[in-house]
Amino acid sequence: MEQPIVQMLNVTKRIGKRTIIDHLSLDLPAGEVFGFLGPNGAGKTTMIRMMVGLISITGGEIKIDGHSISKQFEKAIRHVGAIVENPEMYKYMTGYQNLVHFARMVPGVEHSRIQEVTELVGLGSRINDKVNTYSLGMRQRLGVAQAILHRPKLLILDEPTNGLDPMGIRELRDYLQRLAKQEGLAIFVSSHLLAEMELMCDRVAIIQQGKLVEVVKVEKNRESERTATQRVVFEVDDLEAALAVAATEGIAGGRAGRAIAIGADKEAVAIFNAKLVAAGIKVYGIQAQHQSLEDRFLEKTGGGHIV
């Protein structure tokens, strides 16, 4: 396996007596969209700020591309592009001047690259307008543009969908995926929006109160749903009769309100349905209840802190 692009080793952040990140260890593989999911106040932004060297690390170590962010800052940050919280740019300058500003800070970013990036994020002719005339969506695009300007290996986006309308979120998601494919970079996204993470990421780390709870593979989850046994709910007219059918078939059936729930894969669902119909029971509806990331998240975090 190739070297992970980011290695976090027992990372701890304490401010005063409060422990914000508690011995968190996590490796981010290259070439994936990796989500960082947690309720508000779980420490997502703190973790990101440590990853880009904006705040100090109390204990442990973060390595990016093999370089320690605290000891070899210049080397480690060289291949990182990031938006931390909102994409705040210099409002009195044009979008283009903003990009020139950040291009100058890294060697080897030519003017043609600025053009290229402008095209990629779709800013077009508005690039020559002052940033204070931009909408939030356009500032977000400019934010992404400055983050990918120097062809980073790792793109870090903190709550990238914050304040965007559904259209903007969709566009962002689309070009993040385009970036991951076209430029082949690893993308690290933090969010508390579950559905968003499920659509955007290949893998998601769930954190709570500064601790890593679980790493979930999103893609695998979707595939396994098709073949694996899952909870299926049958809405029927005669619940008792349906339970009796289940009992004779040796299927563990349970009540789910006024419906019957069984654990079954696709084939078993069809068979059980046929049995019910054969027994003269009316089946009004069949619903598979797949466990979404949201369920996993709620299950793991106890659900107390979702906003």
Binding site: G53, V84, N86, F102, V106
Partner: peptide
């Protein structure tokens, strides 16, 4: 808030 963009350069 631009300080955050300024300080994450090499």
């Amino acid at each position: 808030g631009t300080i955050k963009l300024l300080l994450i350069r090499p």
